[in-house]
Amino acid sequence: MSPVDEPRLASEPNGGGLPALTVSQVSVSFGGVSALTDVNLVVPPGTVTGLIGPNGAGKTTLFNVISGLQEPDRGAIHFFDTDVTMMKPYRRARLGLARTFQRLELFGTLTAGENVQVGLESTVKWWQWRHLRKALWRNSGAESARGDSTAVDALVGSDALAVTTPDRLLAEVGLGGMSNEQANAMPTGLARTVELARGLAIGPKLLLLDEPGSGLDEAESQALGTLLVRLASTGMAVLLVEHDMELVMRICDRILVLDFGHVIATGTPEAIRSDPTVQAAYLGAGSTSGGTQ
């Protein structure tokens, strides 16, 4: 492998403000085999940052470290100016950090609407009488939130999306009318989108997406791209792990390449595409001389 192209930790082009996420010198190993080695990266608000790399490069491990499901051996994670390295996952989420999972982690026996609603209501105290009172008559799912949108409006911290009911949020991600579908009965592509909507429901400032495009057809993937760009334009920071390179190249402002747990390159889509180190990482050993024998 060629020498590591150090990521730019200094101020980012976007306004010079604080990065939404700063990962510094993070290392993780499992039983002596190292999964991440001194990873540094920053995700500025208002951008879509791509994270790519071959299978087993450590992308999902990095997501687990950022969201708190995996404790790093070394290094620190900052969410804006808060050190979240030792913080429990639910506390990070309350700060505005949402994620999706490569292998779906939906609330499978709830409906799509209920999945989103759990996210929307995540800051509500369950012992508040109002919620029990509503449940006396109405069914769970989308309907119960309808007509009470002002209350829910206040819950959604981010103004990224002007949507406040499960129905509207689902419609926003292209799943209008599907809120009564049971989540585990939906095709992968749609289920992934439900997961995305659930993440958006907590009003995140940083969105970690682990292969949201897999299982989507061409049109759906297009729509996903448009949505992510729009989310970023409202100031949200998006970190995207994706194998659909067409999508990554099209919407990312910046791309990081992870290989063997190291960040081997950082740059614009054009720079990454023509980077020989990246090609080598994707194509395997000895390929710098070209793709054929």
Binding site: G68, R94, G108, E195
Partner: peptide, 17 residues
């Protein structure tokens, strides 16, 4: 909803806060 969600996926439960 939270009870069922917790049973369906503890990891996701934590990551929605």
């Amino acid at each position: 909803r939270r009870l069922v969600a917790m049973s369906d996926s503890p990891a996701a439960y934590a990551t929605v806060g």
